[in-house]
Design a protein around this nucleic acid. Structure first.
Lengths: 202, 202
DNA sequence: TGCAAAGTTGCATGCACTGCAAGTTTGGGC
DNA sequence: GCCCAAACTTGCAGTGCATGCAACTTTGCA
């Protein structure tokens, strides 16, 4: 997921955001057009219109540019989960936190399709994406325990419930991306949770 | 998960397996004792007793040595799932495939505790581990669809069920590792699946 | 014992990545 | 509109990662 467009930003902030997106897109395009050996820092930077040194002001590593994930994605995922109303049970809170995360998602359908294409051709690229998302899910699951004051070493239920809900939701998200973002993601999520008996809540 | 010890192997195969383990352990020890900048190819190779060039006969990259995961882990996970009896429903098959994978696990408790310690201190290290496992889970979930002849684009149920079961199981595995591998992993897995209403099967 | 297969290793090379510092652009106060 | 500080861009030199090539060593088997 990438950071949402803010409406009130200066030229500097806008240029920074646009440069980051251009670098990410350049990386994906180069991989889509060729192979990993074609995706060099020099080639990415040239296509994005900046110097190779500048590349490292935006991404800590080439792989990060390919993933395009926000450095604070894990922290934000955890925040969304901890911000859920205390009255919500774990599944409802996970569902709500996920929908909040999706609201920040910038849908560049063409870019997403390229990402899917290169994921299929290059498992190493997919590894970076699923790794980043897996860490975010882990943060959400740990936040699920915290908001209940549960100790996962003695009580596996909150962790298992959060992970199971996140798993079902991931199936819905993958289906949604495969369908070219057509239809309602909220309906897909509810269908997936229902399929495993976790929705609607009793 | 690392590859199991085979009883019938030659000197060459044994030395190869031992070298690979020594390199992985060296990488973990160096990170446990210091920081990422201390973990160089040269330092890993020196501690494992091989040359830096030899390091690359065993691992494609430094990060791979840190993760220590088998290059064919994803393929093996998928094979385990496809090998499950056709009479088993998705949850039962996922559970069985996971127990098969665990049978291959070499439990070096000291090494596992070091891995947990460095995971907590170094999120980037954890990212590599969860990424590799996430890919294996994805392969299992896709195999779950294949064995049912289901299309995930039109029917989210098999994918959602497999991912939900894998999520609950992951909670059990993390609890098991945190408990220093004490107790029955099978009982923990069943408790986690029961917590989300997926076990026992109807 | 000898030979082929497999493995080890040094070296040169290209690329990734970083710190430093000089130059440029942006934003805001006056 | 000007000025200045903050933020950003960039070149360069350097270190470490990773690879191909080829020479040498070890292992396994007939």
């Amino acid at each position: 997921m990438t950071t949402v467009i803010t409406l009130d930003e200066g030229l500097r902030a806008r240029k920074k955001r646009e440069t980051r997106h251009a670098l990410h897109r350049a990386a994906i395009e180069l991989l889509h057009e060729g192979d990993f050996c074609d995706v060099t820092i020099e080639a990415i930077a040239a296509r994005a219109g900046v110097s190779p040194r500048t590349f490292f002001n935006y991404f800590p590593a080439k792989e990060a540019a390919l993933s395009g994930t926000d450095p604070d994605m894990v922290a934000r995922a955890r925040e969304f989960m901890l911000a859920r109303p205390a009255t919500e049970d774990t599944v409802t809170a996970v569902r709500g936190a996920t929908l909040e995360r999706l609201r920040e998602l910038v849908v560049d359908a063409e870019l997403w399709q390229m990402r899917r294409a290169v994921s299929q051709r290059h498992p190493e690229f997919a590894a970076g994406l699923v790794g980043a998302n897996a860490l975010a899910e882990k943060a959400i699951a740990q936040a699920a325990c915290e908001r209940l004051g549960a100790d996962p070493l003695t009580d596996v239920t909150p962790m298992a419930t959060a992970y199971a809900a996140l798993g079902a939701i991931r199936a819905a998200l993958q289906q949604h991306v495969s369908a070219g973002f057509a239809g309602s993601i909220e309906e897909r999520i509810d269908a997936a949770l229902a399929a495993v008996g976790l929705w609607p809540r009793p």
